[in-house]
Simulated assay, not measured.
Amino acid sequence: MASNTSEKGHVSTSNNQTEYSDVEQGRVISTGEGRAHPSGIGNPGPMGLFAFASTTFILSMYNVQARGITTSNVVVGMAIFGGGLTQFIAGMWEFPRGNVFGATAFSSYGAFWMSYATIFIPSSGILAAYPDPTELASALGIYLVAWLMVTIFFLLAVVNRSIAYTLLLSSLTIAFACLAGAQFSGSVMVTKAGGAFGIITAFIAYYIGVSEMLAAEQHAVIALPLGTWR
């Protein structure tokens, strides 16, 4: 069976059974009708995106003080197992698929959520180590700034490829910036602004997750475009 390989990773075979394609969100390789990969691993993207979206939505609703909620500790379990473990697994599955962006992003944000949850577990001793609330706020602000920078780096990878991913990471960038600023300033309104952008981020992530899930189905009745700039 003869095959041709280009520099951009496009591969085709004489019987048209295999076709690799680079798409907007980093480098996602698809086979045949775009539903399976030669490694035998299905696309873990929807799983990771739904976990990210749901965890972000819950915490963001608390940040805007929906229904008068001012304590966000209920999100800890979700952050460990949903946004954390599930996304980390999705990232590990992206590596054998050759999707460096997806693997790096899912693994990184999975680590973010697990580390964030650990801060609020009493037995970790992290919060107890800061008797001064001002020092704790500054420490949390620096923590969020680090993830703000990571998100900007991810944004650079997709800004000219996918409209949906560009909107997702742009909104997340603003959310991190607001939440970091709220820690430094102590402003409740800035925290609520961060929560509002977090909710927007969550719904964009839900959209992308549904889009990729439908793309993996042979008999999906609709398709949701992710959009391209070119």
Rank of each mutant, 00 (worst) to 15 (best):
W113I: 02
L179F: 10
G209P: 07
I29F: 02
F112G: 07
I121V: 12
S21Y: 09
N99R: 11
E7H: 07
Y143S: 03
A196Y: 02
N160E: 08
Y20I: 04
T201S: 14
N73P: 00
H219L: 08
A215Q: 15
Q25K: 04
T18R: 11
A137H: 12
I208Q: 08
R67N: 14
H37F: 05
T5R: 15
M114P: 06
E7L: 13
P46Y: 07
T191M: 11
G141T: 04
I174N: 04
P122S: 14
G195Y: 03
A216Y: 08
A111D: 03
G186H: 11
G181M: 05
T191D: 04
T5F: 12
A51H: 12
E135K: 12
A177F: 11
V150A: 14
P44D: 04
T118P: 07
G91E: 05
M47H: 13
G45C: 10
T166Q: 00
L155Y: 08
F57I: 01
S138D: 15
A36T: 15
T55I: 14
F112N: 04
G194I: 00
E7V: 11
R97Q: 12
A205K: 12
V158I: 10
V188G: 05
G9T: 06
I222L: 08
I174L: 15
G110Q: 01
M189V: 09
L156F: 08
G68W: 00
V100Y: 12
S138M: 15
N63T: 07
A157N: 09
L59D: 05
V28L: 15
F153Q: 07
S54W: 05
V76C: 06
L148C: 10
T55D: 07
I58F: 09
Y116H: 13
V11T: 14
T31L: 14
I199Y: 06
P96Y: 09
A146D: 06
P44W: 07
A139K: 10
S187R: 09
V159C: 14
I58Q: 06
G77T: 13
G227I: 02
L136K: 04
T71A: 02
H37V: 11
A53N: 05
C178K: 06
A146G: 08
L148N: 13
F153S: 15
T31I: 06
V210L: 10
M114W: 03
I29N: 12
F120M: 04
Y62D: 12
S185Y: 06
F203K: 00
H219A: 04
E24Y: 03
G26R: 04
G195P: 09
S14Y: 03
